[in-house]
Design a protein around this nucleic acid. Structure first.
Length: 219
DNA sequence: CCCGTGATTTAT
DNA sequence: TAAATCACGGGG
């Protein structure tokens, strides 16, 4: 039975405050609701884990050094757009572009706590495991929600296929989330480099991963 | 720990 | 043209 999209939750207010810097947006995104609509069916979950990528000065960012390629072009769109890329020959990753046009900054969505369309999401996952593994990981959540390159560059503030609904009425207090180094980065980024700001920064150690404290759906 | 997988980037 | 890389996931 397909869920009728014309219900109250479908018209929940959109989360649109994505034109700030990626660290601010990362914290704001925790607790918001990521929504994917396919054939009128809602797939949704609460964002519980994200990572900030700081652009030209960030060794781990696809836009490091101001690099502009066909792949990362969407990351230079204005804040509020989606940057979806394909990696390791089999996984897609979803990023929320932040800041202003041409800044090249974004937030990677690493995990959500699934709340709607669980059956549909399980059926899309090759390995249907426990609920805690359904959308916990950047590649897992894109597979469960059928987020692929066709959604690269869409405006999350206006799209009816992929968007974010305002869930938490205010920003989470610092005590509600943990901050750690980012996952999956090459250790060569451990060397400190002189960033654009003129200060030495260690991008491997930089605490740019944000996760809701004690949440079982964090990857 | 290791490997599948293939687009993208970088080196030659 | 070839090699290396990769914001990962699944299996041992």
């Amino acid at each position: 039975m397909k869920q009728n999209v014309r219900n109250s939750t479908f018209f929940a207010p959109r989360f649109t405050a994505m034109d700030a810097d990626p660290i601010t947006v990362a914290r704001r995104l925790l607790g918001q609701r990521l929504v994917r609509v396919i054939d009128g069916v809602r797939l949704a979950g609460t964002i519980v884990e994200v990572e900030a990528y700081l652009g030209a000065e960030d060794r781990a960012a696809h836009t490091f050094g101001g690099r502009r390629t066909v792949r990362n072009e969407a990351m230079y769109l204005p804040g509020g757009h989606a940057y979806v890329y394909f990696t390791y020959g089999m996984h897609h990753c979803l990023n929320v572009v932040c800041g202003r046009r041409d800044e090249g900054v974004a937030v990677l969505v690493r995990a959500i706590e699934p709340t709607e369309g669980l059956d549909e999401m399980f059926s899309r996952r090759v390995k249907a495991g426990r609920l805690e593994e359904l959308c916990s990981g950047p590649g897992r959540l894109t597979q469960a929600m059928a987020i692929g390159r066709s959604l690269n560059g869409v405006d999350l503030r206006t799209s009816d296929e992929l968007f974010i609904e305002r869930q938490a009425s205010r920003q989470l207090p610092q005590s509600a989330f943990v901050q750690t180094r980012r996952v999956g980065l090459n250790r060569s980024m451990d060397e400190s480099v002189l960033g654009l700001s003129g200060e030495f920064t260690n991008w491997w150690r930089a605490p740019l991963r944000f996760a809701m404290k004690g949440n079982a759906f964090v990857s």
